[in-house]
Design a protein around this nucleic acid. Sequence first.
DNA 1: ATAATAACCTGAGGGC
DNA 2: TGCCCTCAGGTTATTA
Length: 270
Amino acid sequence: MPELPEVETTRRGIVALIGRRVKRLLLRERRLRWPPGRGIEKRIQHQCIKNVERRGKYLLIRLDRGSLIIHLGMSGRLHLLPGYVPPRKHDHIDLELDDGGMLRYTDPRRFGAFIWVDGDPLLHPLLVGLGPEPLDAGFSGAYLYRVSRNRKAPIKAFIMDSHMVVGVGNIYANEALFRAGILPSRAAASLDPADCRRLVKEIRQVLRKAIRAGGTTLRDFSAADGVPGYFAQTLLVYGRGGEPCRKCSATLVESRQGQRTTVFCTRCQH
DNA sequence: ATAATAACCTGAGGGC
DNA sequence: TGCCCTCAGGTTATTA
């Protein structure tokens, strides 16, 4: 479900947690992609929430003596509720606050994660090897050119690899490659410095615009207050296979690349 | 080390 | 209405 813009939208929707205190954690289902550690309920109880951050597609909720690492997987959502609401199917975790509010974690497919860590969350094995944030200065054309040398993998798979750069999922990989005029199937190493500069520029731009729009809502994504994202109206290729290219009117081609639907224009992308 | 595939899950939608 | 198939915004583990 969520790529970087949707996770960032979620983060902004839950910053109101800061300064509030945990009354208790209610775990109805612990069979997630990475299960919450044993004893998480006891460890988090009565702690004050200090900050709400994001690293790639991970949300980091920092408390007095430790942090929550939350990943939404494909179908995860977080909702900040002002008071008690009866839980529905797939409402796996409630973080109850001492003022009566609660943060509810919902995830039908259970590909997500809700983990407690005592130490620095950035040193957790899931986070420690991650590539640069795409909106930080460390993600530059020069960087992409350097790390893609001798890499035969398709450039689309390459930019979706979180060890190269975080936050780029299937929607925005398709969109950025179209905007940069680069075919998704090209070997990463075949990009020259100008290609890399263009691609980095378009990745950054499309992510920034999507954040501004509140993310992309295709089926079920919404911000923590329930408001959907509006970036779907801006998508140029994703979900448009067989339809005319918005730049040149040629029919967009849809194929499958590494189990992922890939859409591109053979006239605009080379 | 790198690249390709399988695996983890549930739900929605299409064809019959 | 039901059954079977495919697909879905992610990531790791396993295999060559």
